[in-house]
Structures are given as C-alpha cells and as structure tokens.
Nucleic acid binder design. Structure first.
Lengths: 226, 226
DNA sequence: GAAAGTATGTCAGATTTCCAACAAAGGAGC
DNA sequence: GCTCCTTTGTTGGAAATCTGACATACTTTC
C-alpha cells in the first residue's frame, strides 16, 4: 500500500495530508486498493455511483454508450488522476458511464459517503479531504464555464479573442504564454486549426494581437504593436 | 430573519435542514443577511472570494469585465439562487466577477471557510450543508459537461442528435419532453434557430426522429415512425 | 369568433467554416 | 551541414451556417 503514497501525495485530493496520515486515513475511510486487469471494468454503467476513484498505476478509460449503444471515450485517466467524483458527489442513482482499465492498473476506491460523513474519530485530515474534493470540483466548474464562454461565441475570431482576453485577465498582463499549441487550441475552441491560423493572421494584420509561437500579446485597438 | 426561512427551505443548499435548525445554523456559521440597494454591489471584482451568496429577495446580477473593460452579464440570480459558490470553493484569490443588485435585495452571505471547517459544536446540519454544497456544484459540473459535449459536435444536426440521445438516455425512453422551446434549444446548442428547425425537419424526413412541439422521439435507423 | 401576438417552419443569398492539400518554418538526430 | 519530421501558415473550392424575410400554425385576449 505504501508504494502508492508517492502518487497520492502528488494528487490535489490529498494535498496537505502527510504520508504518515495517509495510512490512517485510508484505513478510517475504508479505502480499497484494487488491481484491475487490462480490459476489465472498474465499474460499469448502471452501477450506483458510490466511489471516487484514484488511478495509482496504469490508465483507466471512461467510456459512454449512447442510446443506440455506440461507445465513445470521454477521458483517459493517468496515475494521480481522479475519476467518478462528479457522479458520486452529485448523488446520481446510476452511473451513465463505465470505467475500463486500458492497461493492468491499480486504483484506489473511496466510498463517497464515508468521505463526506465525518468519522467519530474526528480526524483532522478528514475535513481536509472534503475541502480538497470540493475545491477540485469547483475548479473544474470554473474551467468548464470558461470553455463554454469561448465556444459560445459565434465566429472563430470571437472565440479566439474571448480566450485571449481571458488569458490576459488571468495573467493580469497583456502578454502571456498559453499552454496549448495551435492544434490543441483549435480543439479547445472547437474550430478548425487551419481556419484558426488564418484568423490569427488577420488579427495580427489588424493590429489587435501580436504573437510568436505560444506567446501572445493583446493590443488595445488604438496603440499598435511596439 | 425568520421571514426568509421559506426561501431558504426551498433552496437545495438547505435541503434536509429544518426551519428550527436554520436559526441555529446561521448563527453558528456567522451567516449575515444584508440588504443591498438597487445598483449597489454585493461584492466587487478583485475582492477575495470568501462568500457563498444566497438571494433572499430581489435579483442579483453577476457581471464580468473583460481585459478592455467591456462589461457583460453572466447570469441573473433570483430568490433562492446561489452565487459565488464556485469561486469561494475553488479558493481563487480574487474574484473575476462582480455581483450587483438589480433591484433592492436581501442576500445571505455565508463564510465559505466556516461552512467547510466543522464547528466545535459538531452540529449535525453542518455536514449536511457541506454535502448539499458539494452536490450542487457536482451537479452543475455534469450539466456543463453535457452542454460541452453537445456544443463540441461539428454540425448542427450532430449537436441536435447528441442532445436528443442524451435526453433519451436520461429518460430511459425513446420518447420524452424537453424543457426548451426551439429558441431556447438553439441557444443551448449554440446554433441558429432557423437552421436548427431546418435540421429537425430533415431528421424527421429521414425517419431518424419524430416530434411535435417539445415532445420528441428518437427512432432506430431501421424501423420508421409507427 | 376575430384579432393580435408568439412560436415555428421554410427558403434564398451572403458569409463563414470546413476540408484537403501544399508551402514554409522550425527542431531533432545524425 | 543535411535530412526527416512536426508544427504552423496559406489557399481555393465545397459544405454548412447565418441572416433576414416571410408563411404558417398555435395562443391569448378581447
């Protein structure tokens, strides 16, 4: 069990919890470490959503079957990553997705109810864990709304500017480096890479932005690139 | 204070908490009921994100200024509605939005830290509140990912089908009623109403769906409308 | 029942985006 | 230096969307 504490200590869910405390905590919460063979399910669609999963080794795929049964991959979760937390915390009766081991893997399953219900021992790390869980889900929330704000814009150019102005605001600077290459940015905004490149060029010529590589600068309409 | 307990008891954040407990709880949490005059701020961009707000009467507008200072309205919150919870729970240092009273209004402000940190009295409703808060944010999370899944589709027709198949799955039935009229559905999917209507017609002619008003039925490709 | 107002379906032209292919620029390895 | 490979910019024709206008159906009001 201790072999996985390195992974766990890097996971935001366990931030502020020492390795000494982890053993106690997992014990207190009834956390179960399970090994899943490649291709086998961690949980299946239709199961009750009871668990928050943490990948310890290997990778887990979250898949979804639509009404006709066509399967699509939603995410691939790497070691240290969480899965199932939104369903468990939202209190959905049955899972609308399945989790399948892409490789042989080890996962930690935490009973969501036991995480949320304070134990009688009043462990200090217990409330810390709830804190971290809530924080993680709230942060994801903010990321999702940012993305929706960009994608809701009508034109590619507006999507791009919405994204860049958001970045400028977050960095509190007109100049900043974005964590995406062109393809990834296009995917994020839900547009075509080539069309987006063209729009970037237009914006540069119009003197509204300046960029090289993933370093961008937004310019106020009146004052041009210096 | 008690005059607002009707509103609070209908708010998901306080579900499972009796009116008798509310007074104790608000006291324990140091919840402050404040009246804000029309046009005045509840909080301003740049403030630390400490509070979860609940509108008790009137309406509150959440607004956002982009990097150039152009203001846009993100949401309008009605009585019973929450605001600021994602920022407070995500632990952002400074708020990227402002909350302005659209009308004279009363709001309840809960210190997020005190909500999360169990009190020394070990109130039973305390953990219930955290439960509810987490559940609400997780549910919003699921709604946002559903919307993104629809909006990420390339064509209007694919967006529509993604939405309808999701609805069919949620209702566990090929036939269901959607909670939107055509305009609202188009806005949700981020497309033009008229273009969407045209696509609905195409899908009907192709025998893939059937609908009248907001009642839809998805059909399997082989068997046509009965 | 008539009239007014709203929601929905349909259509043509203008605009935008996608697609596919290619050119140019940069990096890694040799 | 060179080549190979990846990333990014550019372009033209095809496809999809938006725009605005209008017709039709349905509701509401009087």
């Amino acid at each position: 069990m201790e072999e996985y504490f390195d992974i766990l200590s890097q996971c935001p869910l366990f931030s502020g919890i020492s390795r000494q405390e982890m053993g106690l905590m997992l014990n207190c919460l009834g956390g179960k470490i399970t090994c899943i063979a490649k291709g086998k399910p961690v949980f299946l669609e239709g199961n009750p959503a009871l668990f928050v999963g943490v990948v310890l080794s290997g990778t887990v795929q979250i898949v979804r079957d639509d009404y006709y049964g066509n399967r699509s991959v939603l995410t691939v979760v790497s070691p240290g990553g969480l899965f199932g937390e939104a369903f468990a915390c939202a209190g959905v009766e049955t899972l609308p997705v399945s989790a399948i081991a892409l490789q042989n893997c080890a996962v930690l399953l935490l009973d969501c109810k036991r995480v949320l219900t304070g134990c009688s021992n009043a462990c200090p790390f217990h409330s810390r864990l709830v804190h971290n869980l809530l924080r993680g889900i709230a942060q994801k929330n903010l990321m999702l709304t940012s993305k929706i704000r960009c994608m809701s814009q009508k034109t590619t150019q507006e999507k791009l500017m919405e994204f860049l102005l958001e970045q400028a605001k977050q960095h509190d600077s007109a100049e900043f480096v974005i964590p995406y290459d062109r393809q990834a940015l296009a995917d994020y905004l839900g547009v075509e890479r080539s069309a987006m490149s063209a729009e970037i060029s237009k914006l540069k010529k119009a003197g509204r932005i300046d960029c090289s590589g993933s370093r961008f600068r937004v310019l106020t309409p009146d004052k041009k690139s210096s």
